[in-house]
């Protein structure tokens, strides 16, 4: 058995990686939905959160990259801030196009580099791109995203990456790896 496998075996013996984060998230959602912390409701929530978090962290690797640390939390909040600003900018941009007397756009599909490795990080990046100024994810490769761009300003992958994903990449990389 290789050292890497050995290590993952040892981790499995305790709690699966990412278990605590997912468990907390599920429990928080449950309490919000019920708007109550009565013992019976809390008990059912604990049971369900434990079961679901256990299944998801042992059967798939999707959550294992997300670890709960202060740094992660900070970058998640920073990402949310960047995201809200970009979302509002996207909408004002869209209003400008929509109400222009003549719609003058040069759409196209460009390729950008994808630096994130974890599946959930990629999902977050793709979703963020879809909600930012004039870009929409069309397809995904090993190391590239194909983006439909409402107003193509450059076809160079490096520059396009910086313009479309630059704002999110840094924070998401820190959170999801």
């Amino acid at each position: 058995m290789s050292p890497v496998e050995e290590e993952s075996q040892r981790a499995n013996a305790a709690l699966p990686r990412g278990f605590a984060g997912l468990w907390l998230l599920l429990l928080a959602l449950w309490i919000v939905f019920n708007a109550s912390v009565a013992p019976a409701i809390l008990f059912v929530g604990l049971l369900a959160a434990t079961a679901i978090a256990w299944i998801f962290t042992t059967r798939t690797a999707v959550w294992s990259g997300v670890l709960l640390t202060p740094g992660t939390l900070f970058h998640f909040l920073a990402y949310t801030g960047v995201f809200v600003i970009e979302l509002v900018k996207a909408n004002l941009n869209m209003l400008r196009y929509v109400y222009a007397p003549r719609i003058d756009i040069h759409p196209g599909i460009v390729k950008i580099n994808l630096r994130l490795r974890s599946p959930i990080g990629r999902l977050a990046l793709a979703n963020s791109i879809a909600l930012t100024p004039g870009s929409l994810v069309m397809d995904i490769d090993e190391d590239a995203l194909f983006i439909h761009w409402l107003d193509v300003r450059t076809t160079d992958p490096e520059q396009a990456t910086e313009m479309i994903a630059g704002a999110f990449d840094k924070h998401l990389g820190k959170v999801f790896g």
Binding site: I105, H106, P107, G108, I109, V110, K111, M138, D139, D141, F146, V152, T155
Partner: peptide, 13 residues
Amino acid sequence: MAPSTVVDALTER
């Protein structure tokens, strides 16, 4: 795609 489209990297791929 619209006639004003300038590039289509996905079809090329």
